[in-house]
Design a protein around this nucleic acid. Structure first.
Lengths: 147, 147
DNA sequence: ATACGTGCAAAATGTTTGCGGCTCA
DNA sequence: TGAGCCGCAAACATTTTGCACGTAT
């Protein structure tokens, strides 16, 4: 990612490209997503919007996330029981990463690992199905919660 | 897994060991879980129970799943938007596997891969957090849906 | 006897949808 | 002008919880 600004710009451009209209609420949502580093819920976005005095209905947040997901500009993650989480992504899959979830404090820590990616790639070739996407979720205790 | 029968027996024994009482509804739920091969929803279990003429409230299904999850006798998975899914497991982690989800038909196909497990194990050592559990979810098109 | 389990129905979430009105292109 | 977008509130779906009653130990 080249900074939050970059993502919002790419997203805005790609939306236009795909025949979507510009609008105040929608770009406010894009801004909010872009400034979040990783895995936020729709509620998190709503809170951020409110803090920035942007009046955006929750439905619009969800509808925007849906469009962005279709364009692969956000990735949706389901980590455990809570609500779905979303994070900005580049459609070409650059800066791919995965997540560690602390079972005590609930913190989500992103990480990258080349060996893991290679193992999954090799696995994809071995399986008789075409693998387009993958998620790896590690669970345990984060350094802070380990006593 | 040594057959569905075996799992239900192990589960029943372990529940007793942990001070839980035996009951008709609960063992009916255990049976239902044991006979399912992989990743079922609470609703799936309710349907199976009804078909077998067992009258068990949905709350009991959820409460039983919760207890089993605490004892690591079932693993809970969140695959996409639908409801949570559960599958029988052995508490020692034997017969560990992961899942491929077809984005067209929604089918879930289990698979095992040693290289992947090794990569995750090495990764766990590299990270400064203690990894206790991991899930890998692949998404794509299954052989049937690929044209 | 009593702590645990159960069913029911209500509540609590989280997410989607219908609709009338508004706005960008 | 007209297709898309908006906010609101109602609808939905899934899961949790309170409560009075039952039952295994």
């Amino acid at each position: 990612m080249h900074g939050p600004q970059a993502w919002a710009e790419v997203a805005e451009a790609m939306l236009r490209e795909h025949g979507h209209k510009a609008s105040g609420p929608r770009s406010a949502v894009l801004e909010s997503i872009g400034r979040q580093s990783c895995v936020v819920t729709a509620q998190d976005l709503a809170v951020d919007l409110k803090r920035r005095k942007k009046k955006v209905g929750i439905a619009t947040v969800y509808r925007t996330l849906e469009v962005l997901e279709d364009l692969k500009l956000v990735q949706r993650l389901d980590l455990g029981t809570e609500s779905a989480r979303y994070e900005p992504a580049m459609p070409d899959g650059r800066h791919h990463h995965h997540h560690f979830v602390c079972r005590d404090c609930g913190d989500v820590i992103p990480f990258e690992d080349d060996a893991l990616e290679r193992a999954i790639e090799a696995l994809g070739r071995r399986l008789s199905a075409s693998v387009e996407e993958h998620d790896v979720i590690l669970k345990g205790r984060c350094p802070d919660c380990e006593k």
